[in-house]
Structures are given as structure tokens and as C-alpha cells.
Amino acid sequence: MYFLELVISGIAVGSLYALIAMGFVLIYKATGVLNFAQGEAIMVAAFICYYLVTRFGVPFWLAVPLTLIASALLGAVTERLVIRPLLGEPVFSVVMVTIGLSIFLRSMAGIIFGHHNYVFPSPFPVKPLQMAGIVLSHNHLWSMIISFSLMLIFFFFFKFARLGLGMRATANDQDTATLMGINIKSVYALTWGISFVVAGLAGVGLANVMVLNVGLAFVAISAFPAVILGGLESIPGAIIGGLTIGILENLAGGYLDQIVGGGVKDVTPFAVLFLVLMIKPYGLFGTKEVERV
């Protein structure tokens, strides 16, 4: 029973990881860049939602769409200011720029919001759902529903929508995509916008489950392993990776903590990440990069 409990709470955490991982995958799929500032996007969205609800008295159901719009704008502005100038530069530069952006945003948030914890006004009933002895909070249920429906939406989007195909083409080869008449600039802006919207959803979800503070941004770093495990460019991979990491970290925390003395839960995702990279670097569903001379 202890095992099952751990697995269930692992799935609950994992569905949030999956939501975060999807934001990473979107940007990677369309632009070939891993956005290290995703966690900051999550944190900022959570704070926007918090301020809308508590300071301006906006009802929660209205605050969420407003937050998502704000996130989309933030994403587009970020792309315009930081990523656009580096169009066509090596991946290394773009990745480093997102690292720079992430520490900039995080410390600015630290200056503005301070480092204390905020209590997020959760709209869900505190009493968890109980089904056949399994306890699940409303919040986790919702994040699971959102993750899975987003996965379906994105699956069809990348398979059939003109824009989705354009994004994949851009990721594959920027130059050729331009020659084929794809407007790379708008593809970039849209991708960042959409990805920040996903981050916004994750932010609202996370703030409900965890305490709201600037450290929320670090959760995204724990979602990296999920992204790598699932494969950097696979949306279903993000979900499966997220759930697996969530379960593994809970099991490791539940069983190993007594032996080594604390903190196993936080380091497990990275041990898994390291192992995955050693054994199967392109993850479960990633495309292997084949080089021919």
C-alpha cells in the first residue's frame, strides 16, 4: 500500500513535470533550442495570476486566461528582444542567451517579489478526491487532464496544421524553410508565445500545489530529466518522461531517504538524467541525429 501511495503521488507530480516538459519540447521542436528560462516563465506567470486574484480581485476563472495572455505577450517580447538577434547563430550562443535570461529574470523577480512565500488562493476544494482507496487532489487531477488534452492538441497541430508543419520545417533546417516560403520570424514569435502559454498553465498549476515563491523557477530544472528521458522533440515523450520521473523520484525518496539521510528526492531526477544520457542519449522517442561524412 505504501508503494501504491508513492506511485500515485508520483503520477500527480509527474503530470506537472509533463506540463513543464511540454513547454521545453515545443520550443525545441520548432527552433532547435532548449529554453533554460522556461522555469522563470512559469514563476512569472504564477505571480501574475497571484496578483490578479489577490490585488485586483479578479475571479480565478477569469484570471487564468488573463495570465495566459500575459504569458504569451511575455514570450513574444522575449523572442523579439533576446532570441531574434541571434537568428542563424550557433545553438551554443542561443542556449547561453537563455541561461543569461533565466538568471536575469529570476534575480529581477527576487528584487521585485522578495524571497518569502506567498499563499496562493487555490480555487479547488481542499478535500481530496477519493476513489477506491486512492487519494488524489483536485489540483493534480486538473493538471493531468490539462496535460493530456494539450498533448492531443499538439499532436494534431504538428501533424496537420500548416503552422505546425512550418515549425517542424524551421527546426529541421532554417535556410531551407525560408526558401520554401515559411516566415521564420513569425514562426519563432508564435512558438515562444505558445510555449510561454504552456508555461503559464504549468505555473498556475504548480502554485496551487507548492508554495509560491521565486524558487518556483527551479522546478523547471527538475523537469529537464523528463524532457531528456522522453526525447527532446516528442510531445508524448514529454508526458511519459514526466510521469516516469515523478514516480521514480517519489519511490527513491520514499525508500532511500532513511538509508542515506535526506534529499534523495531532489537528486534522483538528475541521476536518471545522467544515466539516460549515458545509455540512450536521444531518449525514448527522440530522433537520433545521424551524421554522414
Partner: peptide, 22 residues
């Protein structure tokens, strides 16, 4: 003034150098 400003400036410097003076 806060130590936090230093870190913010680091982030800003990384971005500015990569964009304007690689």
C-alpha cells in the same frame, strides 16, 4: 542595494555580449 542586483547584471551581461559582441 541587494546582492541580487549582481546576479541580474550577470544575466544581462551574458545576453548583451552574446547579442552585440560575440
Amino acid at each position: 542595494y541587494d546582492e541580487e542586483w549582481n546576479i541580474a547584471v550577470f544575466g544581462l551581461l551574458i545576453m548583451l555580449f552574446l547579442i552585440f559582441e560575440p
